[in-house]
């Protein structure tokens, strides 16, 4: 084969193709002022650029939730409040296997392995919440989601969550009741945007390829009902 001259039209086309391919496979950049995030070393535990871990080895090393789509996931007012008074959302940490130990009746959370989230002052919390709100990768996953607050599950909500779809196997629906390997859901309604919840339940893997939450292939109406059930849970007050 003759050597390809990169100054020829074919050579330029190949170079352009390669450049585009590299852009597609590389971590996408994002907008927003990240100075304050850097000051607080947020990236030591959180991914501020995508994509999500594509291997189990990478998944196991993740210390905190990915934030590169924080603006599509979290309610900004919740972020601002939580950063000033952070409370654990995942009872067994980010990857549960890194924080459990054998127990007499079942595996238990090894609380000594868990660390507290940094607590911020109100000014920094407000600025960081505003910056996180600009991180909006995966926008295509939520742009077609339409939350319908009228699709109430009524008294069947808990039955759907606990029995029909088995979500409580991994999630707590009130403090001290439910599974521990996933995030608590009784605060999800104040923490998360409804469109994100809809999209995430529809396909957890679309957001987080290797995550240990399965796709139960729920019909849209029931996804709406589960989201409204969780929003209702968040309106209750809990003694923790």
């Amino acid at each position: 084969m003759n050597s390809l001259n990169m100054t020829t039209p074919l050579g330029k086309w190949l170079l352009l193709t390669l450049a585009l391919f590299s852009l597609v496979t590389a971590s996408p950049a994002h907008a927003g002022d990240l100075d304050l995030l850097n000051k607080h070393n947020c990236s030591s535990c959180h991914a501020l650029t995508g994509p999500a871990p594509s291997t189990l080895a990478a998944l196991w090393q993740r210390k905190g939730p990915d934030l590169f789509y924080a603006g599509n996931k979290y309610r900004q007012e919740w972020l601002e409040t939580w950063l000033q008074n952070p409370k654990r959302i995942r009872p067994a940490g980010m990857f549960y296997m890194n924080h459990i130990k054998p127990g007499p009746k079942r595996n238990m959370v090894d609380t000594s392995s868990l660390s507290q989230h940094l607590q911020l002052n109100s000014s920094d919390a407000k600025s960081i919440a505003a910056t996180l709100a600009t991180l909006k990768e995966n926008r295509s996953l939520i742009q077609n989601e339409k939350h319908d607050p009228k699709l109430s599950p009524g008294p069947l909500g808990e039955m759907m969550f606990d029995k029909i779809y088995g979500c409580m196997a991994c999630h707590q629906i009130e403090p001290g009741f439910g599974g521990l390997s996933g995030p608590e859901v009784y605060t999800a309604g104040t923490r998360l945007k409804a469109e994100f919840m809809l999209s995430y339940i529809r396909s957890p893997q679309a957001w987080d390829t290797k995550v240990w939450m399965p796709n139960a292939h729920l019909p849209d109406n029931n996804i709406q009902k589960l989201v409204n059930y969780m929003i209702n849970l968040s309106k209750k007050s809990y003694n923790e």
Binding site: R106, N107, F177
Partner: peptide, 27 residues
Amino acid sequence: KDNYRTYCMQCHGMAGQGMGLNIQDMS
């Protein structure tokens, strides 16, 4: 082995004996 650790142990337990982290309130 890695898939079992990631997806199965949360309920079936670290030793696979059904004593996972999540079982306390399971019916």
